Amino acid sequence: MRAQFPCSARTILSVVIVLAISALCDSPAFSADLQTDSSGEAPFVAENDRAMTRMMEDMAVKPTGDVDRDFVAMMVPHHQGAIDMAQAELRYGHNEQLRRIAQEIVVEQQQEIAAMRLALGQSLPPSAPAPDQQKPVSVPAAHSDPTSHRGMQMNMPTHTQEEK
C-alpha cells in the first residue's frame, strides 16, 4: 500500500528525487563506473540519462501568466520522464516486482497526463503502442489472421456433421 501525499508534497518529493538522481548521474565517479561496466547496465543508465535530460529541459517552461497552463506544461514532461524511466526498467530490469511497479507507473502517469490535458480542454494525442511494445523495423509483421493466436493454444471442440 502506497502512502498518500497531498499533490504538492508528492510533486516536491518527485522533484527532489529527480534532482538527486540527476546529480548522481553527473558525478565523475558515476561516469567512470559506466565506462568499466561489465554488468550490462550501461544501456539502461544511458537511456535513463537521456530521459532525465529531456525531462529537465522540457520542464523549463516560461511562465505565461496562466498558473493552470504553466502547471500542466511543467507536469506533463515530469510525468513523461517517469514513463520513460519506467520503460527503461521494463526493457532492462529483471526483478518482476519492480517491473510490475514500472508497468503501473506507465499506466498511472499516462492517465494523469490525460486528465491534466482534459482539465484544460486540450485534445489528447492519438493512441500508440508503447516504445517497448513496438516491433523493430527488421521484424516482419505477423500475419493478421483474426483466428490465429500465436502463443495461445485454443482447445475448442470441433463438431463433425454427424455430431450435430
Rank of each mutant, 00 (worst) to 15 (best):
P28F: 03
G151W: 08
G121Y: 01
R10A: 15
A115N: 14
S22L: 07
Q134K: 10
L124Y: 01
V76G: 02
A102K: 02
A51E: 00
R150A: 07
M52L: 10
Y92E: 01
R2M: 15
P131C: 02
F5L: 09
M55H: 02
Q4H: 13
P136V: 01
V16M: 08
P129G: 07
P131H: 04
I83V: 07
D70W: 05
E108R: 12
Q122D: 15
A9H: 05
E47A: 11
Q133P: 00
A23N: 01
N95Q: 06
I83P: 07
V139T: 12
I83C: 12
D68Q: 10
Q133Y: 02
R117N: 01
G151D: 05
A42M: 04
R54M: 05
A88W: 06
R91T: 08
L24V: 06
V15I: 09
L120P: 02
L98P: 05
V15E: 07
P140F: 15
V137A: 09
E89T: 04
A142M: 07
P6L: 12
H143R: 11
L19P: 00
L90K: 08
S123V: 11
D68A: 13
H94C: 08
M56C: 10
K62Q: 12
P77A: 01
H159D: 10
Q110Y: 09
A51C: 00
R10M: 12
N48Y: 14
T53Y: 13
M116E: 06
P136N: 02
V107W: 09
